[in-house]
Structures are given as C-alpha cells and as structure tokens.
Amino acid sequence: MTEQSKQVCSLLQAAQKDWKPPTLPQKAADMPQGDMPGDAVHISEAHRTKADAIFPLLLPQLAEICARNPYGRAVITVCGGSGSGKTGAAALLGYYFKQIGIGSYVLSGDNYPRRYPALNDAERLRIFRQGGMHGLTSGALLNPDVWQQLHTWQIEQRDADPTLCADVPWLAVYQAEGRKALAGYLGTPSEQDFDELGQTLARFKNGIDAIWLKRMGRDDAALWYDKVDFSQVKVLIVEWTHGNSDFYCGVDLPVFLYSTPQETMTYRVSRARDGAADSPFVTMVLQIEQRLLESQAHKAKIILSREGKVLSWSEYCKLAVS
C-alpha cells in the first residue's frame, strides 16, 4: 500500500468509529455543487435521509478500494431516475467527505450525451416513429387511411398513447415496434458518450491531477471544457441516471436510488424545464429507462428505497415488481 493510500484509508477508518451527520452550511454556495451548467443543488430532508444512510456504508467499502489504488482514489456513482434524489444526495456525500478530511468532486453524467437536450429529444422521437413505420410496412398494414390517422396523431403528439390501441390494432403494432427501436437507443453508446466518460475516470484513477472535463448546456452554443484540479481529490462522485451502465468502466462503488416511473414523471412535470413532460411519449421513455435501470441494479453495492431505507437485494426485487 502506498503512502497516499494509507493516508486515505486512515481517514476512512477513523470516520467509521465515530461518524455522525454534520451540521450543514448556512449558505448553499458552501455545499459541493455538481458540474452540470445551470443546475443548482437544493437540499431537502429526503436528500439528507438518503445521504445519512449511504455514507456510513460507503466508509468500509471505500477503505478497501482506496487501499488497492496507488493514489488512494476511488469512483462512486449515485444513479437512479429523475427525481430519485441523485443530485442532492451526491452533493451531501461530497460535503461529508470534506468534513472527514477527504477531497471529493461531484461530476454530472448529464454532460456526456452525444446531443444537447432538444436534439436528443428529437432523435428519440424520430427513432420511435421510424421504428413504428417499419413495423407497419413490414406487416403490410400501411395504407392512405392509416397514414392520415397516424399523421394526425403524430401532429397532436398522441401516437405513443396506448389508450388509443384498444380500437386500432395497427396502432398497437406501430407502438410496439417503435418502442423496440427506442429501447435500442436509450442509454446506449448511440445516445451517451460512455467512452469519453470512461476515459475521464481512468485518468482520475491513474493519478492525473489536471483533467479536462466536458460541459454541455441546453443548446448548440453551450459546449466547452474546463480544466479541473484533482490534486486534492480522492473520491470522484458521478451522479447520473446511467451511472451503473454496462457500457463504461471505472466505477468502483455504485449506489442505486430506486424510484418509480410515476415519481419520475411527477418530478419532471414539477421541474417544468422540458416540453411535454407528461406526454405519452415521455411516459414511454421513462418506462424504458426504468427497466434499463432495474436490469443493472444487481451491480449496485448499496440500494435505497424512495424513503431512504437501505434495501437488501431480495427486498429490492419485491419492491420493483410490486
């Protein structure tokens, strides 16, 4: 074990003995902020409950991980759907590490899509509709009357509405094939730049002290890189929906915050940042992403319920199917 590893492990081991949740700073600016442009961290009691449950469980696991890294460094991911509490919980974890003398950095995976939000939303819809049209043509279901009705629903943003399928069998085929095509895009390397993020994590774990990090805002003029000083950082916290994905490497300790698609939808509507947040198509997207998250949940080292309860794997499985 290197001297750097020993120092970090010593701090982690000391914290295990007498750690208590610290008093939070009065100023929001004194809390570690994620690096997503335009986002601000708002800490709630729900975030505090989650972070207080997670942090003491991290300490012994991180001690083992940091002991193996010659620079005493480790990567955590806090993942889950929108509104599960990722951003707030990650910020609190960063603050808690600071209080025990360990430097940390909160990195937002939302900086690593291949397209800025408006373009990605358009690409998702294009893929769904193209897949649906292929389903109609391959099933010999497309004719002028079908197209006229479908085109009307597309204009109205209702072509993904499952309630319309009861009396329209061909629409069920359209939606099923569109959904299949969409599932082949969401959370894959076609949508997210996992390679670049994986390379960033590798640089960090290999002891690089100055790393260029990608910044992506909400339009085509908001893309740049910042050079970040990691010389005092030992724990990199990645907060991201896809943080537990199979498509990249470098995460040592995944933490999964469980939430339902309904809870995610409520959060998106309240956020009111993206158009048509409660549309049938967005509902479909959230359902597909939820199944993706659940398929990766077995890799998580820590799983929390919506209420902040630590779940065993069997408890999580029962909750996920209920």
Rank of each mutant, 00 (worst) to 15 (best):
P162H: 01
G178A: 08
L125D: 06
A122I: 02
R158C: 07
D145H: 08
A160F: 05
A122W: 02
L141F: 06
L141V: 01
N143K: 05
D161H: 12
Q149Y: 08
G135Q: 05
A166Q: 11
A140F: 06
S138E: 15
C165M: 14
L171G: 08
V146T: 13
Q154F: 00
T163N: 07
P162A: 07
L182T: 11
Q148H: 13
D161N: 15
D145F: 04
H134F: 05
T152R: 12
R158N: 10
D161M: 09
P117V: 03
L150G: 07
A122V: 04
P169Y: 10
A172S: 15
Q154T: 12
W147P: 03
L150S: 02
V173I: 14
W153C: 03
Q130W: 01
H151E: 15
V173L: 08
M133A: 01
A140I: 01
W170T: 05
P117E: 01
W153H: 10
L171V: 10
A181Q: 11
A183S: 15
L150C: 05
G132T: 06
N143L: 06
G178I: 06
W170M: 04
T163H: 11
G178T: 07
W170G: 00
L141H: 04
N120D: 12
L125G: 01
S138Y: 00
W153I: 02
L125C: 03
R129M: 00
Y174K: 09
V173Q: 13
A160V: 06
G131S: 03
L142F: 00
W153T: 02
L119D: 14
I127A: 03
A140E: 13
M133E: 08
Y116Q: 13
D121T: 09
Q130Y: 03
P117I: 02
G131A: 00
L125K: 14
Q148M: 14
A122L: 08
Q149T: 13
A166V: 11
D159F: 02
K180P: 00
L164E: 10
E156L: 11
A160S: 15
A176L: 10
Y174E: 10
R126Q: 12
A118Q: 15
A140Q: 15
P117G: 06
